[in-house]
Amino acid sequence: MVPGTPTTTSQAAEVGCTAPVIAIDPGHNPTPIDMYDPKTGAYMSDYSNGAEDADTMEVSRRLREDLVADGYTVVLLKKGVNESVSYRDRVTRAEKANADLAISVHTYTDDHRIFVQRVGLSRQGTGADGQPHQVTYTNRATAAESQKLAADFAAARGKVEGRTVEITDNSFDGRPPLWAGSIPIIALISDKVPWIYNEFGTPTGGGSVPIGEQGIATYAQSLAAGVRAAVPNKCKS
């Protein structure tokens, strides 16, 4: 099976039930991306971040295997560590898969937050024409679904990790060339698919520093618990 190919169990097909579709977005890109989203004009900057690239891919692969075994349909929005894919292309893949939920997988030292879509959150900076440009999230239905699913998702993650997983807004201010604002670009430009953006870290690992085997295992398990709590697979007998 080619990594990233949507998969489901025959059991779901036998009972005529459609399994939930989960899109998994492993964080970061092997080569720099410096471009503007053709639909919204938002500035899309991505890059490699050392160990985070491999860590989030391994977490995503384990999460996919776990969910597929439980009857979910799963698509990886980045098929391998070395695949270069923009935020817009990742969102398009999630939309084409008719994802019920998309989750971004990132790491940062001792971090355990979740970022969601909210109406009014925005990013702003210099546009492709050299003029100030702002993109604001406006889809109320998608934002409401993102927030609703995140509540159960965070609670389930917290139980596995043994700590409170906070749902909050991020700040990208003072991080040039990134646009300033309060929502991850990939969540901002996802108009149709509810998005949950995850951070995870240990006291000594995250971001460019490896989170280690135990960290990878715990993160994958907590994300799987989050998915099952937020989007139960009712096709499973």
Results as ranks from 00 to 15, higher is better:
A230I: 05
S190N: 13
A143D: 08
S208F: 05
T56C: 10
L77M: 06
D191N: 15
T73W: 00
K96I: 01
S146G: 08
P232L: 07
T218Q: 09
A13W: 09
G125D: 06
T8K: 09
T7H: 02
D111F: 14
Q124G: 15
Q117I: 11
V85Y: 00
S237F: 10
T8R: 12
P32W: 14
G27Y: 00
T202H: 01
G207H: 05
P177H: 12
P32S: 15
N29A: 12
R61N: 09
T218W: 02
V59G: 04
S190M: 14
G215I: 00
N170G: 13
F115W: 12
V75W: 00
I24G: 01
A141K: 15
A13E: 06
D66G: 09
V227R: 03
V105Q: 05
F153C: 05
D70L: 10
R118P: 12
S86I: 02
L149A: 08
Y219G: 01
D25H: 04
T138F: 09
G80N: 06
V68D: 02
A94I: 02
V81S: 04
P20R: 01
A220D: 00
I183T: 12
T73H: 00
T73S: 03
A217R: 04
N98D: 15
A141M: 06
V85L: 00
P176F: 12
S146A: 12
L188V: 05
P210E: 13
P30Q: 05
S222F: 01
A220Q: 00
S222M: 07
I103P: 02
A23F: 00
R123D: 09
V227C: 07
V165E: 02
Y87K: 03
A154Q: 06
Q221W: 04
A155L: 08
A128V: 11
D110K: 13
L223Q: 05
G158W: 03
E58Q: 10
G181L: 11
C17R: 01
R88C: 03
D66E: 13
T40R: 03
A156Y: 01
G41V: 04
Y197G: 07
G181P: 06
Q214I: 06
T126Q: 13
N82H: 06
L77F: 02
D169P: 06
I24T: 01
A13C: 09
